[in-house]
Design a protein around this nucleic acid. Structure first.
Length: 745
RNA sequence: GGGCGAUUAGCUCAGUUGGCUAGAGCGCUUCGUUUACACCGAAGAGGUCGGGGGUUCGAGCCCCUCAUCGCCCACCA
């Protein structure tokens, strides 16, 4: 029997065809695996959700890396006969998407979102998201990802919106979501608040100015931001500081750069007597710490900077100016009035917004928060160590689910970061002053009773009856909806009745999910918040294992980014070398939690491997003569080779079960190329021509057996070339001409 | 300031509970068109596993210490 095989695997032509066949088979959907009898109805489950890519970004090496790791896990488990589900979706990514579309419109039409109006603007963003989603899906498919597209979700679709509103309402009723007036991180560019986690610190050189507010005030203070001092309402000193003790309780008045200020001297133990002058000008409206000092000491709060980072008070050159310009003007004013006592260059960490890069301006604002320390009663809990009906807090839930071993991290060291983060966790600010996202399910109505005016608040899943209600204009932090992802994609809240999953629902079958695989960079943003939301809303863990991967870097160990010009586009690489090669090169040499080093050389190397697989298969098939019916007589070498194969099977299986994908891949690579192709095939050549048919039968049988088994094991790693080879194997070796993807491991 | 990690061949990295005569890919040297594959094969050079100390019959792996690099968190006005 001879095969007409080219000497190359034509990935460009065959990969899309093969993917189509997989899709037609329907086997990405576990329901079909049961229906067609591939697996039993009561087979063990293996479920995963895809970390939904932002609709703003096209596929990059980072997402390719994630897709490969997850697809290997999924394909392996599917072949092991598990009821395997991998749920795809995309993330609306509120701020990121909105600011992208704002920029696009600004560039093309020179219009702001306000020019267009809320409703029309949202339609534009939505159109953008739909288009983007289509691109992402086709790219995800090109990687060979065996996702169940029939269950595809979007963090902002109707079902997910219902989940968001339901969760919000529950948390509000439990007192875990509250509205509070506090100094928050304001992004003047994005015109919105952001959470503490979205603040990025950058080290810069700054000047520390030492000065007096006026000649009549005996205390000097130091600051890097003189312009904010127009909003000072107090001077804080350490209560035991001998220099200043005598002033505590006194109030000084002054006119500072055109603004009348009144400063009360207060004692506060948080003031470091050794820093600067040992006295701190308290600016409650523009510093989170000062806000806290103000609360404790009952100080007035005076805002002097607006949402555009402009001064609202002060002399000419200060009022109406951006803070950076006003700062210089205030320093000039200090000099002119002989109040400046010194300036010193220091290193300072300034806070910037993760998405827009703008310098954060702390401002007092009325916002919605999630309280992680407030006690509530959890109606039902399967978290070990927390009983149903027990009083607990979100923080305790988050900690317990990991501490008790129900959720395991791979690599384990990330558990430490996780606990550290929880320990430092403050209220989570969830409201955003943008338009794109889940609108906060809160309505307000002004009531007038006689002379009394008050505002009524209604929080609910749906809008209240009656007229005059206005919905809160803000939307939720995008992570609020992604935090629900593991269960909102499986049918919560509709399939969740009386604290239990409906019989036969996805929620019952697939929750908790088996593994959550994602990048360590969103451990806090996402993983921790999923644990929070799932333990709270379901009383269950969201996943049994958290597997974290690192960044993709280039051969010089630099982060891959467009601005560095070292961007390797996975789609270009797929076109050149095939998806199998790209997949292998991302996996090999990358331990869990580690960064993946990629280069075109490396990809080329694995393309060569793919060709090697192809040609070794070609050789075996060319030499397979089915007319030989002689009983094979195996040599010791044959037996040893088959024994070795069994050993490889065992250790590769173990590695995959232990999530050591890189080791399994490396072993297979090495075994296939340097043992099977270089040694076993070479040694078989004379025997394949032997006059003794029993010898020929043995040789070809051994080759075919090893080929069949290695192709199977390589399938999760290199699904395309292996599926194609599989289809060419003689009958009896590829069972009933089934697809390799559902072959039993 | 607190925490985590890395340091293994020229380069990029594997090496899970200590048993290695220390591996891979790329690169390098020499040779080779033979029933698949030159996107190939054969042979080879190249490492005191960051320094020092300790535990052990035995340490790249465990403990202590120093050095360098990286990351995360907090943030002093």
């Amino acid at each position: 029997m001879t095969h007409k095989m080219d000497s190359r695997f034509d990935h460009k032509k065959l990969e899309p065809e093969i993917y189509k066949n997989w899709e037609i088979s329907g086997f990405f959907n576990p329901d079909n695996l049961i229906k067609k009898g591939v697996i039993k109805k009561n087979a063990k489950k293996f479920s995963m959700v895809l970390p939904p890519p932002n609709v703003t970004v096209i596929l990059h090496m980072g997402s390719a890396f994630m897709l490969v790791i997850e697809d290997i896990m999924v394909r392996f488990n599917r072949m092991r006969g598990k009821k395997t589900l991998w749920v795809p979706g995309t993330d609306h990514a509120a701020i990121a998407t909105e600011s992208k579309v704002v920029k696009l419109i600004q560039k093309k039409e020179r219009k702001s979102k306000h020019d267009i109006g809320r409703e029309a603007f949202l339609k534009r963003v939505n159109d953008f998201a739909i288009e983007s989603r289509a691109t992402i899906i086709s790219q995800t498919k090109a990687m060979g990802s065996s996702l169940d597209w029939s269950r595809e979700a979007f963090t902002l679709d109707d079902k997910r919106n219902l989940a968001v509103r339901t969760a919000f309402k529950r948390m509000y009723d439990d007192g875990l979501i509250y509205r509070g007036d506090r100094v928050i991180n304001w992004d003047p560019k994005g015109q919105t608040t952001i959470s503490d986690d979205e603040v990025i610190y950058k080290e810069v050189k700054a000047k520390l100015y030492t000065f007096k507010y006026s000649k009549d005030i005996p205390i000097s203070i130091a600051t890097t931001r003189p312009e904010t001092k127009l909003g000072d309402t107090a001077i804080a000193v350490h209560p035991k500081d001998e220099r200043y003790k005598k002033y505590i309780g006194k109030t000084f008045d002054a006119e500072f750069a055109g603004e009348k200020i009144s400063l009360k001297v207060v004692g506060d133990r948080n003031v470091d007597p050794k820093f600067g002058t040992g006295a701190l000008g308290v600016t409650p409206a523009h510093s989170i710490i000062d806000w806290e000092i103000a609360k404790v000491n009952n100080l007035p709060i005076k805002q002097v900077i607006n949402e555009y980072a402009q001064m609202t008070v002060g002399i000419e050159g200060v009022k109406g100016e951006k803070t950076a310009i006003a700062r210089k003007a205030v320093v000039e004013w200090l000099k002119k009035n002989n109040l400046l006592e010194g300036e010193e260059e220091i290193d300072q960490n300034i806070s910037t917004a993760e998405r827009t890069g703008a310098i954060i301006e702390p401002l007092p604002k009325l916002q919605w928060f999630v309280d992680v320390n407030k006690e509530f009663i959890i109606p039902r809990s399967s978290i070990k160590g927390i009983r149903s009906g027990q009083r607990t807090t979100l923080k305790k839930l988050m900690r317990t689910a990991v501490k008790n071993g129900q959720i395991k991290f791979v690599p384990k060291r990330f558990e430490k970061s996780y606990f550290h983060w929880i320990d430092n966790l403050k209220p989570w600010c969830i409201s955003r002053q943008i338009w794109y996202g889940h609108r906060i399910p809160v309505w307000y109505r002004k009531n007038t009773k006689g002379k009394l005016q008050n505002e009524r608040i209604y929080v609910g899943v749906d809008k209240p009856r009656g007229s005059g209600w206005k919905q809160d204009p803000d939307v939720l932090d995008t992570w609020f909806s992604s935090a629900l992802w593991t269960f909102s994609t499986l049918g919560w809240p509709l399939d969740w009745v009386k604290g239990k999953a409906k019989k036969g629902s996805d929620l019952e079958t697939y929750h908790p999910t088996s593994i959550l695989e994602t990048g360590y960079d969103i451990l806090f943003f996402w993983v921790a918040r999923m644990i929070l939301m799932t333990t709270y809303n379901l009383g269950e863990i969201p996943f049994e294992t958290v597997y974290l991967h690192g960044l993709v870097r280039d051969e010089k160990n630099r982060k891959i980014s467009k601005s560095l010009g070292n961007n390797i586009d996975p789609l270009d690489m797929i076109a050149l070398y095939g998806a199998d090669a790209v997949r292998m090169s991302l996996i090999i040499g990358t331990a869990p939690g580690g960064d993946s080093k990629i280069s075109e050389d490396k990809i080329r190397g694995y393309r060569n491997f793919s060709t090697k697989i192809w040609n070794a298969s070609r050789f075996v098939l060319m030499n397979y003569d089915k007319t030989i019916t002689a009983r094979p007589v195996y040599t010791k070498y044959d037996k040893d080779a088959l024994k070795q194969l069994e050993r490889i099977k065992k250790t590769v299986t173990e590695d995959l079960e232990n999530l050591q994908l890189h080791r399994a891949g490396e072993k297979l690579y090495h075994y296939f190329w340097h043992t099977f192709a270089d040694k076993i095939i070479e040694k078989s050549k004379p025997r394949l021509n032997s006059k003794k048919l029993s010898e020929r039968a043995a040789a070809q049988k051994v080759l075919l057996t090893i080929l069949t088994e290695t192709i199977k094991m390589l399938h999760p790693f290199m699904p395309y070339v292996t599926e194609e080879v599989w289809s060419l194997l003689p009958n009896g070796h590829n069972a009933k001409k089934n697809l390799l993807m559902i072959e039993k491991w």
